[in-house]
C-alpha cells in the first residue's frame, strides 16, 4: 500500500507546476516530508501566526513582498519588525468585512496569490470552504507564492486544498513555555516538534502512524 502511495505521489508531482522550494532553517523543516516548503501551495495554520510570519519571511526572494490580508485590523507591524521583517517589503491590505461578508478579503487573497511578485500571503479567514480554497490553491500555483491561512488554535484537521496543515499549541510542563507544532495534514501527518521562544528545538516525536489514504490522494492535481 505504501509503495503504491509513493508511486501515485510521484506521478502527481510531475503534473504539478514546479514553483521551487524554500527552507526556513529552523526545526520546522524537519517536520516536512522533503525538509522544505513548496512554493505555489497553501499552508493552513491552526494558531501560530508568528511561526507563519517567520515562514513567510523565509519565503522572501529578491525584490519580492509579503502581503498581509488583515481584515480584522489586528496585525501589529512593530512586532513583525522585531522579528526581523523589513516593513518596506510588507504590503498590508485591509479589506472590509461587513456582516461576515468577506468578498473583498477573498478577492484580495486571490489577487495576491496570483501575483508572481508576491512571495507569501498571510490571511486570517473566518472560514474557508473547499471551493474557495481550491481557487486560492490554483492562484498560488499560478503566481508561485505561498499562502498562509491562519485560523484559531485547534487540533481540527482541515478539509481544504492546503498541502500542509499545522496545529500550534502552547505547552507547559514546568520547564518554560514552548510551542508544540504538529502536522495535521501532509505526508508526515502525526509528526510533532516542540520549540522554545528562540525557535530552538527541544523535543520531537510522532503521535501515530496511520495512513490517511483518501485525504492524501485528494490532491489538487489529481482532480484537475
Amino acid at each position: 500500500m505504501r509503495a503504491t502511495l509513493e508511486e501515485l505521489r510521484e506521478k502527481i508531482g510531475t503534473i504539478r507546476p514546479d514553483c521551487g522550494t524554500f527552507v526556513t532553517n529552523s526545526p520546522l523543516d524537519r517536520l516536512l516530508p522533503e525538509g522544505r516548503f513548496r512554493r505555489g501551495s497553501l499552508v493552513q495554520w491552526n494558531g501560530g501566526s508568528t511561526l507563519a510570519l517567520l515562514t513567510a519571511k523565509a519565503a522572501l526572494r529578491d525584490s519580492g513582498v509579503i502581503v498581509i490580508v488583515d481584515a480584522g485590523h489586528r496585525f501589529y507591524p512593530p512586532a513583525a519588525a522585531r522579528l526581523g521583517i523589513d516593513l518596506a517589503r510588507v504590503v498590508i491590505a485591509r479589506p472590509d468585512c461587513v456582516d461576515r461578508n468577506c468578498a473583498d478579503q477573498d478577492w484580495m487573497t486571490h489577487q495576491a496569490l496570483c501575483c508572481p511578485a508576491v512571495d507569501a500571503v498571510l490571511c486570517w479567514p473566518e472560514r474557508v470552504n473547499s471551493g474557495l480554497c481550491r481557487r486560492w490553491q490554483l492562484a498560488a500555483e499560478k503566481g508561485g507564492s505561498v499562502g498562509m491561512l491562519i485560523g484559531p488554535a485547534a487540533k481540527q484537521r482541515g478539509t481544504g486544498w492546503a498541502e500542509l496543515q499545522f496545529a500550534v499549541t502552547g505547552v507547559d510542563d514546568g520547564g518554560g513555555r514552548r510551542q508544540r507544532v504538529e502536522i495535521l495534514k501532509g505526508r508526515t501527518t502525526g509528526r510533532w516538534i516542540e520549540i522554545n521562544s528562540g525557535m530552538k528545538e527541544s523535543k520531537e516525536g510522532k503521535i501515530h502512524d496511520r495512513l490517511h489514504l483518501v485525504s492524501q490522494l485528494a490532491d489538487s492535481a489529481a482532480v484537475s
Partner: peptide, 17 residues
C-alpha cells in the same frame, strides 16, 4: 508588483507601515 498594486488598490486600500 506595480500591476498588482494598481489592480487591487481601487477596491482594497494597500498600506505600508
Amino acid at each position: 508588483l506595480a500591476g498588482f498594486v494598481d489592480r487591487t488598490r481601487c477596491r482594497v486600500p494597500l498600506l505600508r507601515a
